[in-house]
């Protein structure tokens, strides 16, 4: 099985070699998230460093029984990036990505991330069309409830309900797949 050993668990256990390995496994993931959230390369560089230092310092907070490592790292990165954008007084919104690539991450982590993404995509496809559309606008395009309501013509209460129910459904389904959760 690819990527079964958690670098965060090893960091929490005091393994110094896991710290740089965390970068080689998840550097591309965190960088891509930061670029998408912030757009500006300079902001993204600072944010990526913040995210990794947060991950290393709080590695013991990762519980493999609750989520896969790529999902947990994405959650921490999203949290830091959302917070960063709120502090900057900007709306959380995704930015278009350039195609340029330099360097790259390990294949094991790439495959693990793809595997995790495929599971979530399958769950997403189980949602009702309207729920799925709203969730996509909120998660991927980073639109606010108000922006989604304006775009879709749905009442804001319905937008909130779709997001809430959709997230709960996804979490429940993923927990079933992971054999645990709450």
């Amino acid at each position: 099985m690819i990527g079964t050993d958690s670098v965060l668990t090893r960091i929490a256990a005091g393994d110094p070699s896991a710290v740089p390995e965390c970068i080689s496994r998840y550097g591309s993931l965190v960088w891509s998230l930061a670029r998408r959230f912030l757009g500006n390369t300079t902001d993204a560089e600072d944010a990526v460093q913040d995210v990794f230092i947060d991950l290393w310092k709080n590695a013991a907070r990762y519980d493999p029984a609750r989520a896969s490592e790529p999902t947990y790292i994405t959650m921490i990165a999203r949290r830091r990036l959302i917070d960063r954008k709120r502090r900057a007084g900007r709306t959380v919104s995704a930015q278009p990505l350039p195609e340029e690539t330099i360097g790259g991450g390990g294949h094991d982590s790439r495959l693990e991330i793809q595997d995790e993404a495929a599971k979530a995509a399958a769950v997403l496809n189980e949602l009702r069309e309207e729920e799925r559309r709203v969730i996509q606008m909120a998660v991927y395009q980073g639109l606010t409830h108000e922006q989604i309501a304006a775009t879709t013509g749905l009442p804001i209460g319905t937008v909130k309900t779709h997001i809430r129910r959709g997230l709960i459904r996804v979490r429940e389904r993923l927990c079933v797949g992971e054999g645990g959760g709450q």
Binding site: A67, P70, R78, A117, A121, L124, Q136, V139, Y140, V170
Partner: peptide, 12 residues
């Protein structure tokens, strides 16, 4: 937050 993160991975 974990559910949103998993969805973000799926859509990336």
């Amino acid at each position: 937050e974990l559910a949103a993160a998993a969805l973000h991975l799926a859509m990336s």
